[in-house]
Design a protein around this nucleic acid. Structure first.
Lengths: 124, 124
DNA sequence: ATCAATAATGAGAGCGATTACTGATATGGA
DNA sequence: TCCATATCAGTAATCGCTCTCATTATTGAT
């Protein structure tokens, strides 16, 4: 189960993990997958986050940000700089305790961007 | 309806809007609220985002980031600097078209932070 | 090995948020 | 007036996820 999540960099959903694990253990139930994924998150071996109303799991524990392509759904990891953002420093200076952040860019990946331009200029 | 969202800075949920609008139009249904909020978002008069599995609406169209208190649920708007983040520039340089971002800090607000410290050091 | 205590699982019901459907009512030209 | 279109309230359905509970391992003494 843990291995299933680690085996991809695609930020799988519980559903995806279910399908993957099912190949090795055909009788496993979806509830068990949810339960064990939660346990793994609590143990700190996985991280979880929410995108489009579904929980996704990630075996990469290093803090990182994301870029999401609006068209093809690609979700790209972006390593995070050691230095906190200026706006975070400002929050701390104002007395807030900042313990984490979510930073997610969205737009078009290289491939999709090219597709759009061609569609606009070239044909139709 | 639009006015109901504009009348608060609390990033209301559809439920909240429903309760608010109901006072003026007691026969309105929750479905209608959802539908019309969607329309307003499509028209670009409101923005929506998701937090803790519920959709929230925001009448402030200026791009801004958020700070969320883990303890009391406070959700604070943070005005966004004109200058894009260095990491965004890097993405663009790599050929991605970045059209927006979500940046959300979380931690403890001033009040809650104080509460925790007192609880730890002082009593019990 | 045996057996009781404990933990984990599968199957499916339940839940909260949201969306889709449906029939009734209102609006607005020809 | 008559029909077309739009909107809405009410409600059923869906979706992702969690909970319950009877059943099935697993564990740790004996």
């Amino acid at each position: 189960m843990y291995e299933a999540v680690m085996a991809t960099d695609a930020h799988p959903t519980a559903e995806w993990v279910y399908e993957a694990v099912r190949r090795a253990m055909p009788r496993i139930s979806l509830g068990t997958v949810y339960r064990n994924l939660q346990v793994l998150v609590e143990e700190g071996r996985l991280k979880s986050f929410t995108r489009d109303g579904r929980t996704r799991y990630d075996g990469d524990l290093a803090p990182h940000d994301h870029f999401a392509c609006d068209r093809c759904g690609l979700l790209l990891d972006i390593p995070r700089a050691a230095e906190p953002l200026p706006v975070e420093k400002r929050l701390k200076a104002r007395g807030f305790a900042v313990s984490g952040r979510v930073l997610e860019f969205h737009g078009l990946c290289r491939k999709c961007r090219r597709g759009i331009q061609i569609a606009k200029g070239g044909r139709k």
